[in-house]
Amino acid sequence: MTDPIDHVVQSAEPVLRIVEIFGPTLQGEGVHVGRAAHFLRLAGCNLSCRWCDTAFSWDPAKVDPERPPRTLTTQAILEQLEPRVVNPNEVAPVIRHLVVTGGEPLLQSNMLIELCRQLREFGWFIEIETSGSVSLGALGEVIDQCNVSPKLKHSGVAHRARLRYSVLNEFAGMESVAFKFVVQKPEDLDEIDELLAALSRPIHPSQMWVMAEGNASDVILERSRLLVDEVIARGWGLTPRWHTLLWNDEQGR
């Protein structure tokens, strides 16, 4: 006989702790830079980078009163993104590309599975952004792209917390994965070289992206100019941050 408590837990609808749902806008960085997409930002993070531009998603002291963390069911999120969930006769959205970000979205990976599965049944493309410090698990079966952004020393996060090589090797073994490093100066690229050498799986240069750190367009452009030649020499990609270059830190962009 099924335990009644187990039955309740197993049948409960998945819920997610989120900060905001917005779009369509542009994916501002990485392998799909410039593509139109919707964004789902989840609350909570296991790291605390000193320069984080979305600290409002995990730091209680920086919560934005206009978009505080809240709990939504999978169904409620689906209804905001995909009108055919409510009415199968509705026209499909023109933009069916979802970027799940944070914070660290993989802290809620099990709760994301059903959401991603249903969206893919409606023809959506699902992209996950992560620091690479939390395993993807079964979520990997229901997403299309994973963008892994390991943190460097300048993040201020302890080495043992930000670099879990067993987890990074899992990501390195995926087919649809890109690695994106936030960089402040050219010397940081040497640190990336050391990190890649420590992995047991090679990462092809075409999967490598570097992005200048900064929350203002002039800083992004200045640092990108300093980085570009060294990035090209390694065969990697240099990604902009369109959301910062176009709108700085405007909400919903």
Results as ranks from 00 to 15, higher is better:
P105H: 07
N215Y: 12
I95L: 15
V231N: 00
V94K: 15
V94P: 11
G252P: 14
D64S: 08
I232G: 08
E104Q: 14
F122Y: 15
L26K: 13
F22T: 07
Q145I: 12
A12S: 11
C49Y: 04
R41I: 06
M211T: 04
Q108S: 09
F122A: 12
S131H: 07
K185M: 14
E114R: 15
W51F: 15
Y165F: 14
P14D: 02
S224I: 07
L16H: 01
L47S: 05
D3H: 01
N46D: 05
F122R: 14
E20P: 01
V183S: 10
R84C: 01
L245E: 06
S109T: 05
R225F: 05
V134Q: 10
S109I: 08
V219P: 00
T130C: 10
E121F: 14
H7G: 12
F181Q: 03
S176Q: 13
E141Y: 11
P205I: 13
C52V: 06
Q27A: 09
W58M: 05
A76W: 04
H7A: 15
L246A: 07
L26A: 06
M208P: 00
N110P: 00
D190L: 15
N147Y: 04
E79V: 09
A233I: 03
E230H: 05
V8S: 09
R120N: 12
G123N: 11
I220L: 05
R223C: 02
G123Q: 10
S131W: 03
E170S: 01
I232F: 08
L107G: 08
G156C: 08
Q75M: 14
V33L: 06
V85T: 12
V19S: 05
F122G: 09
Q145T: 10
E114G: 10
Q108R: 11
E127P: 03
Q118Y: 02
I5F: 01
R67K: 08
F56P: 00
H159F: 14
I126F: 06
P105W: 05
W51S: 05
R241W: 03
L106D: 01
D6L: 13
P4W: 02
T244L: 09
V142D: 04
G44R: 13
Q108N: 09
V182T: 06
H97R: 15
S149Y: 00
E82S: 04
A161C: 13
H159K: 15
Q108P: 09
V33T: 12
A212Q: 02
N169T: 02
T101F: 08
S133G: 10
